[in-house]
């Protein structure tokens, strides 16, 4: 697979703070690549180095096959970038901003005339394009920030927390748009703290913490790297001692703890044994109201890999 982003021991420090530490990142073409990490992990710093806003202390990086260097505008010609909570010039109107940015990308007048209204429609600002950006709400500025990132029909789109400040409908629209762009062959590099968002749209994921890559790969690969058994959380009506005994007797159950109507069953396996557990509860006279497998969602993987599960609990 062709890499559209490739870093080699990329390092960036702020004084004594190492924000990005020898990062080896690889984003393959035609993927939606999630970039995850807790606050201060170095996600935005990495992106800013890639875009040319920050200078790396050491290491190297390539975007679309070109070394990023410093102040090399040609490396950004086919890249769209949406910063986290984009700050856009308030003195311009939405259409003016996109038109001027379009000129900066070297788009012809005909291209701008077609692309600008289309993009405003796509992000839901079709009827507000002639308003000054200073009159836009935070969510509307976020939408315009997304539109400007897609203006040059980029091969690579880098989105830093695109759902921040959006209402639930807006979030869904952004996810749908990402999927649509990916289908059209655009590579998307998505930095997000919304794990369910990443889980819904991304095909590949890189997790970093304190500037260091924790893991990288497809969602399935990453899940399989998580050590330790799964857990099942189950809510049971008619919860009784025989049910607990029955569950504890199951060969793949390590421990069962109770909290009101809820049971947390710790397993000795990573196999999905929900049907066996459900059957055991029913046989012992209980009624399963709800059941969740814990330890396989991206959130579980994220917490597990960052070693913060204990702190969280």
């Amino acid at each position: 697979m062709v890499a559209v982003i490739e870093t080699n021991s990329l390092t960036k420090t702020y004084g004594s703070l190492v924000a990005v530490n020898k990062l080896n990142l690889k984003v393959e073409k035609n993927t939606i690549h999630g970039f995850l990490g807790p606050n201060g992990a170095g996600k935005s710093t990495t992106i800013k180095v890639l875009i040319g806003l920050l200078k790396a202390d050491s290491g190297s990086a390539k975007i679309l096959g070109q070394e990023i260097g410093w102040d090399r505008p040609e490396t950004r010609a086919h890249v769209g970038y949406m910063p986290e909570l984009p700050k856009l010039p308030k003195h311009l109107k939405g259409t003016e901003l996109l038109d001027i940015y379009g000129r900066m990308y070297g788009m012809t007048e005909a291209e701008r005339a077609k692309q600008v209204p289309e993009l405003l429609d796509v992000v839901g600002l079709g009827d507000r394009g002639t308003d000054l950006i200073g009159q836009y709400s935070k969510g509307m500025q976020q939408r315009l920030g997304l539109a400007q990132a897609l203006l040059n029909a980029p091969e690579l789109v880098i989105l830093d927390e695109p759902s921040l400040g959006l209402d639930p409908v807006g979030m869904v629209e952004v996810r749908d748009l990402m999927k649509k762009l990916a289908k059209q062959g655009t590579t998307i590099f998505l930095s997000s703290h919304l794990l369910h968002e990443v889980q819904q749209v991304c095909t590949q994921v890189t997790i970093i913490n304190r500037g260091v890559e924790v893991t990288s790969g497809s969602l399935e690969e990453i899940s399989s790297r998580v050590e330790g058994p799964l857990k099942i959380e189950v809510e049971v009506n008619n919860l009784s001692k025989p049910i607990l005994e029955k569950l504890e007797a199951l060969p793949f159950v390590d421990n069962v703890s109770r909290s009101g109507k809820k049971l947390l069953i710790e397993l000795t396996t990573r196999d999905d044994v929900r049907s066996e557990v459900s059957q055991a509860i029913t046989n012992a006279g209980g009624v399963v109201v709800a059941m969740n497998l814990k330890g396989e969602s991206l959130e579980d993987v994220f917490i597990d890999l960052l070693g913060t599960r204990e702190k969280e609990s």
């Binding site: 806003l53 505008p73 950004r76 700050k87 990308y105």
Partner: peptide
Amino acid sequence: TPLLAKPL
């Protein structure tokens, strides 16, 4: 930030 992210 968005300004310097353009190919200029």
